[in-house]
Simulated scan of single mutants.
Amino acid sequence: MSTSAIAKRYARALVGIAAEQQTVEQYGSELGRVREAFGVEKYLRLILESPTFPLNKKAAILNDLMELLELSEGMRAFLGLLLEKDRLQYLAQIERDYSRLADEMAGLVRAAVTASRELDVKQQQAIKAGLEQQTGKQVELSIAVDEELIGGLQVEIGGRLFDGSLKTQLKRIEDTLKKG
């Protein structure tokens, strides 16, 4: 089974449980905190993922981490299962898949907008409204500025990139002129 299939299976199961318990946001936040801890403390992650380190010692370390992060009982059980099944190495993918599934369940889609300059509130609202009309879902924007775009926007939503930047348009014209 591929790693992405494994991560999706665990994420789908956790979203299902969280939906039943009405803790979808809480579990998402807790998953993020654990992933951050693994990112900051690389040796912690390496020890917990090591096949040669004794399981009982890994369980004690993970338990201490869960205490420190003040995780819910449901999340503790989930992380314990990941440790027992030797699946902690998939935690980052599980978190991404969990977030995507939770967003789908809530009818939310995230869009990353890159603009050539700062956008005012009115422009942001217009972009959001247009994307909501196109997708039929609630849109959450994250906005970045890249002056190299010269003008226009790039929007990444649902894994697709829509590029309306002046830089890309000029590049297309250049390519057309070179081809003759």
Score class of each variant (00 low, 15 high):
5 A>Q: 11
8 K>W: 10
9 R>H: 13
9 R>A: 12
9 R>P: 06
10 Y>R: 09
13 A>N: 09
15 V>R: 03
20 E>M: 05
21 Q>C: 05
22 Q>W: 01
22 Q>T: 04
29 S>P: 00
36 E>N: 03
37 A>C: 06
38 F>V: 07
40 V>A: 13
44 L>N: 06
48 L>S: 01
54 P>W: 09
59 A>S: 14
61 I>N: 01
62 L>K: 03
63 N>D: 15
63 N>I: 06
64 D>A: 14
67 E>R: 12
70 E>N: 13
70 E>D: 14
71 L>H: 01
74 G>V: 00
77 A>I: 09
82 L>W: 03
87 R>Q: 10
90 Y>H: 14
90 Y>R: 03
93 Q>A: 15
101 L>F: 12
101 L>M: 15
102 A>I: 04
103 D>N: 14
105 M>L: 13
106 A>E: 14
107 G>S: 08
109 V>R: 09
110 R>G: 00
117 R>Q: 13
126 A>E: 12
127 I>R: 01
128 K>E: 13
129 A>P: 04
133 Q>C: 02
134 Q>N: 08
137 K>F: 06
139 V>L: 07
140 E>I: 10
141 L>Q: 06
142 S>I: 08
146 D>R: 03
148 E>Q: 15
149 L>Y: 01
151 G>K: 01
156 E>N: 10
157 I>F: 08
158 G>V: 13
170 L>T: 06
172 R>A: 09
172 R>N: 13
175 D>C: 00
179 K>S: 13
180 G>H: 06
